[in-house]
Design a protein around this nucleic acid. Structure first.
Lengths: 88, 88
DNA sequence: CATCTATTTAGAAATTTAACGAAATAGATT
DNA sequence: AATCTATTTCGTTAAATTTCTAAATAGATG
């Protein structure tokens, strides 16, 4: 089930912050890494996980790999939470 | 930050299922444990984590400890997701 | 085509998480 | 008070996660 991957991906604060960064638009991996006090490799691993969870997509341009939000997949997580809080 | 605890708690499938179980009303720990093929001790640990994340509350009655959803805290998680999906 | 540059992959260490059985606790019930 | 019952706590183990450095790759650029 995809929900598990989504929730797992969202459970890490670095990954959540990456997602927040991408709210304002696609960014190359290097820009993202620079923002954190973590190695490029570590950020790359987080990006890979987010990508596998389908929360972000990559798009190559020139020498760079731009990452951008894939909003549609958040729906499922939102719905799960709603299902809990709403209807009786 | 509370969001971290909330997200961490929600990242585990057993804990999410426990929350779903509690949708229909408060249940004693034993009833919850019986539903899973996991030891009482393991379920107790999950309940403890959910309690610390403030997603559930306990309520003692007779010999039992009933657990129930504490819906208000889900709001924060919902809002975080909304903040991501809604307007830039 | 040789070499930068951006990024990923590999391998390893440290930490966290999830699980168990056994022992402890706390509250009813007899 | 003694005992039963529901649940937690303890100590341990196995697996997963997060991080690092170093090496590999893949595309531009000169």
């Amino acid at each position: 089930m995809a929900l598990q991957e989504t929730m797992k991906a969202l459970s890490n604060p670095v990954r959540r912050e990456i997602l927040m960064m991408l709210k304002t638009g696609a960014k190359p991996a290097g820009d993202i890494a620079q923002y954190f006090e973590l190695s490029q490799a570590t950020i790359s691993a987080h990006l890979s996980l987010l990508k596998h969870a389908d929360l972000i997509r990559e798009q190559k341009y020139k020498n760079y790999i731009y990452y951008e939000l894939n909003l549609s997949v958040f729906e499922e997580a939102t719905l799960w939470l709603k299902g809990l809080t709403n209807e009786k």
